[in-house]
């Protein structure tokens, strides 16, 4: 009945993949909130002045920012979970998503190679931060010369295994 012995779930907090010229590590869970509908109105109300970022947009490390997922959907990243009630707020809706994604940080002189191995970037800057990254639908932005990849929590093990293997082949 046992089809396969699967390796244990990864990554745990603090896990790191070290390769020649590239380092992947998990980031501490912070706050995240899904905003749909009038995203601009939602951002203006919940985190005024926060930028709305597309693919490879520059994420400010000490402030909130909204990662656009679709035309009318975004993920508001904050330094800590927001206490906004889930639901409809007139022109937009919110749902706490603090734990929906696992955040990974990729950096190093060879991180470009890892990026090319994992995703096909569109010809022009994409307004959406969502993209297939090593076969998983992730949100990908830049942060302080590194890459921040947000992968759905249930898929983090699969992505981690793929990154681990890919880093070794760079």
């Amino acid at each position: 009945m046992r089809e396969r012995r699967w390796s244990r779930a990864r990554p745990d907090p603090g896990d790191v993949i070290e390769g020649t010229g590239v380092r992947v590590r998990t980031l501490e869970a912070r706050g995240a909130m899904l905003i749909s509908g009038d995203v601009a109105a939602g951002v203006a109300k919940l985190a005024p002045g926060s930028p709305v970022l597309g693919l490879l947009g520059e994420l400010p490390s000490t402030a909130t920012a909204c990662l656009r997922i679709a035309r009318d959907r975004g993920l508001l990243l904050s330094l800590a979970p927001l206490e906004t009630e889930d639901g409809w707020h007139g022109a937009f809706a919110t749902s706490a998503a603090d734990d929906v994604y696992v955040a990974l940080d990729i950096r190093g002189p060879k991180s470009g190679g890892l990026r090319e191995a994992c995703m096909a970037e569109p010809p022009s800057p994409s307004p959406s931060a969502a993209i297939q990254f090593a076969g998983h639908t992730c949100l990908v932005v830049r942060e302080d010369r590194g890459l921040r990849v947000l992968v759905p929590r249930s898929e983090a093990t699969g992505l981690w295994a793929m990154l681990d293997r890919t880093v070794r082949s760079l």
């Binding site: 745990d12 076969g135 898929e155 699969g158 890919t166």
Partner: peptide, 25 residues
Amino acid sequence: TRRGERFAPLKRLPLEAAHRSQGAL
């Protein structure tokens, strides 16, 4: 490199480690 577990990775539970520690198959 998509071989074995990497071919079609399964989704994982947040509490998988806890279940395994209790003898979950």
